[in-house]
Design a protein around this nucleic acid. Structure first.
Lengths: 205, 205
DNA sequence: CTGTTTCATTGAACGTGTTCAATCAGATTG
DNA sequence: CAATCTGATTGAACACGTTCAATGAAACAG
């Protein structure tokens, strides 16, 4: 009887090698930054040849994405799940800060990580676009619930406001990695305050 | 009497070589894209050595900036000067479309041009940050004038709204080069409509 | 059990961006 | 006018990312 649930040795080895390569990649990228890490240093750290490293990442940027995408996605997903029923801006601020911390945790890499995720190509472009769409959808859902409990004007189109928030957030992140926006979460908060300004139920106008 | 106004031969030659190198760089980048163009092909086109090309651009990205910054700056500055007294969103839409056209005019290069300008490093980071600050200031001024002629609520903080517009604009541009925002000007318009929504004098709420 | 197929792995070769010592030409000085 | 200084130019060397033909090991078929 064919053992369907037990992959054969080759598949096991492949997965083990892939994990080893991606872990070595993550370590090198986080320690040395994208440019500082080389395919050769990653290969040496993983104990394989450069051809094997390239086998698991079709180019260096793909390697970066493959090494770090899942962890950042976990951070984002957890922060989205934690969107609660507190004041709208506080909840959004928490979301922004959680993602910021994930970037700040890898200072040598934050600029390139952001740069390459925003401008990814091929399959990874689609994955990052999907991720942004998921965040926008989650934020729109959060805003809809806020409207339903009367914390936000019913006139506001949640998906547009979510896209606005995402725009502010990414712009703030870019400003932050570029050193021109030292307090990105505050920046997002200020813009979102104006954006929602007349849409909160107690707006005086 | 020292001829102050007439640079010597070496200075003349340096400027001529610089212009030649940057023009060759611009041609190659626009024709082949950033990755498609090589330092060697630029050198060949300019009739100089690779060392000379590197002399006029400390690295390939700097070469890109040096080759294209002034032209894009001219487009932006002209569009800013044309901000008039028409409906606020129409004027901002025109500004957005003018810059979009400048990018669209070089399809092989638009993604990298945007990517490298947003994530520039060193002196160029400062120049691009200054450019963004100039745009924000000009848009804030435009919004202030709109308030003064009663086309916009006096309660709106112009510099915050300008930062919001810039966020929408860059996010739309990124979405456009990534293929997820086919109508970036419309995207900006939609978000800005919501942002200004309750701030126009005829807002029903 | 053996031959064949499949796929992972290897590492040298290649093209690239970047560096730098050597050379050359223009400017300056005495 | 010659010697010296200064800065532009050169292009080979280097390290890098990427490619690919060769090799080896696992899987499969008979």
């Amino acid at each position: 009887m064919k053992q369907i649930n037990r992959p054969n040795l080759r598949v096991q080895r492949r997965e083990a090698t892939r994990a080893t390569v991606l872990e070595a990649a993550r370590d090198e990228f986080e320690r040395l930054g994208f440019d500082g890490a080389s395919i050769r240093s990653i290969a040496a750290r993983a104990g394989v040849s450069v051809g094997t490293v390239m086998h698991y990442g079709s180019d260096k940027r793909v390697l970066l994405h493959a090494a770090l995408f899942d962890e950042l996605k976990r951070v984002i997903d957890r922060a989205l799940r934690r969107l609660g029923t507190g004041p709208v801006q506080d909840e959004l601020g928490r979301l922004a800060r959680a993602v910021l911390r994930a970037y700040a945790a890898r200072p040598a890499l934050s600029r390139t990580l952001l740069k390459e995720s925003l401008f990814a190509e091929g399959d990874w472009a689609q994955r990052f676009a999907q991720q942004a769409a998921d965040v926008a959808a989650a934020v729109a859902g959060f805003l809809t619930r806020a409207q339903q409990r009367g914390a936000l004007s019913a006139h506001l189109q949640p998906h547009v406001a979510a896209a606005a928030w995402l725009s502010f957030f990414y712009f703030a992140l870019i400003g932050w990695v570029q050193g021109v926006t030292p307090r990105p979460a505050r920046f997002v908060d200020t813009l979102m305050a104006q954006h929602l300004g007349a849409h909160s139920p107690r707006a005086a106008r």
